[in-house]
Design a protein around this nucleic acid. Structure first.
Lengths: 254, 254
DNA sequence: CGTTCATTTGATGCCGCTCAAGCAGTGTGG
DNA sequence: CCACACTGCTTGAGCGGCATCAAATGAACG
């Protein structure tokens, strides 16, 4: 389905040949380090849509790196509802919430057929303690994960629904850009339900806002494919305290 | 085993004599490890209300441990507003967002006169790589930090304002309990404005809800001192999808 | 072609935001 | 010690945005 520009022939077993190496743990360690890291990394079979990498309460402390596809992490709430915590794309790490010998506090589920690398955390930690470069990179990706959660909270703190959706879409675009993909062409692998939950809204509101964004000429929405027509407008909407809502007020001028 | 009594005379310079040792980095490292850790830890002068430990953009990658008092972390938004990310009490770590040689992505400000320990992160990392116990504890507190952020997101995902406030108050209570303090007696060192911002609400809503909680016999609110009268009711409110709102409908049980 | 599920679209009502005024605790200068 | 201003919080009235309920449409699949 997705005509990803990734060369799957290059996605072999070794980290050295991985297209994501610069985003992932191997960044900034030498050839010898790579060899030792390679010994730890376990490849997994493709995870089909709906299967989970780990579930709440699980005790396996492994680190997962998304190679292709996408995942969502979420917690189950006492009232039977969910809360989606995040979406994860190639290069992202999963499993940081259970370092080391702790229990997972959330679930990680594939949104589509996806591939991951799997690293036993304790062994990784051992190797990292002898490879300063790897250790540093490990801290860095953890720090990045903190930054991502902070972004989520900033988004949730914004009261107006249009700003939340705009921030979300802009964030997806940024992440695609970082992966070397077209930042204007979003492929929403998650359902509207997941998006709404992630944003603290209901599904109807998300749907309506998508429509309004489209009418305003900001987006082209076609089912799960979203094309960003006006990035500046999207940014304006994202940063709007209360302003910039004018561009959505039905009047389809300009 | 551990006596619940905090002896303030024991709050001397060394980690070994610190009342927070079991919550902090020294947990589960031996005497020799403690000595090496002590060499890294720098004591700081008391931080007065309003002073910042670090600011957005700062490049000093240090770790801070709150010894007494409290802090808030927050980001500045383009429109001049803030977003409060969290509140931090004794035993909590600050500065994890700038590991290592990255820039801080938020500000940390004292809410009252507070004390912190300060550890240069790079040196801590070096020592930790030779002390598996310390390394593991470092990962653990980072993992805890992830868990705390997840709780925040769950809270923000709840639509109903009463549930958000109840979750917040209950969380504060839990944190006091973990510190060996009375979990029923909350001392809100942060302003209503900070609370409202943290919860994604406005100050008036927080104020009204405090009033309603008090009328319902759940709380005793007196300025910044909040006494929890009915912990079960507070929990019920926290987990309420939509139910349990009944207990707030004006006339209530004596 | 019919069933099912995801998404869109519409109508209505409530919760929480906005605007505005009142109040208590704190500090300052006379 | 009191008058005054100031800041942080509470309380009230009114409105609007988003949730809720309900139904239609469209895509996916056997």
């Amino acid at each position: 389905m997705a005509s990803a520009v990734i060369d799957f022939n290059a996605l072999r077993k070794s980290c050295a040949s991985c297209a994501l190496a610069q985003l992932c743990l191997p960044a900034s360690i030498g050839a010898e380090g790579l060899t030792r890291l390679d010994e730890l990394v376990q490849q997994r079979k493709p995870a089909d849509r709906g299967t989970t990498l780990f579930d709440t309460g699980g005790r396996q402390s492994k680190l997962y790196v998304v190679r292709s596809g996408s995942f969502k992490t979420f917690v189950d709430l006492p009232d039977g509802d969910h809360q989606v915590l995040g979406f994860h794309f190639p290069g992202d790490l999963l499993g940081l919430d259970a370092l080391p010998s702790e229990v997972h506090r959330c679930n990680a589920q594939a949104l589509e057929r996806s591939m991951v690398c799997e690293v036993p955390f304790n062994e990784l930690s051992n190797v990292a303690s002898k490879l300063p470069g790897l250790q540093q990179q490990l801290y860095r990706v953890m720090s990045d994960e903190f930054a991502r959660e902070q972004e989520h909270m900033v988004m949730m703190g914004r009261r107006q629904a249009p700003a939340r959706l705009a921030i979300f879409l802009h964030s997806l675009s940024e992440r695609r850009r970082r992966l070397g993909l077209d930042p204007l062409e979003l492929n929403l692998s998650m359902s509207r339900q997941d998006i709404a939950n992630y944003l603290g809204l209901v599904i109807e509101t998300v749907s309506r806002l998508m429509g309004r964004f489209q009418s305003a000429g900001v987006l082209d929405v076609e089912r799960r494919i979203v094309h960003i027509r006006d990035m500046d407008a999207l940014r304006a909407l994202a940063h709007a305290g209360d302003a910039a809502d004018g561009m959505l007020k039905s009047a389809s001028s300009s």
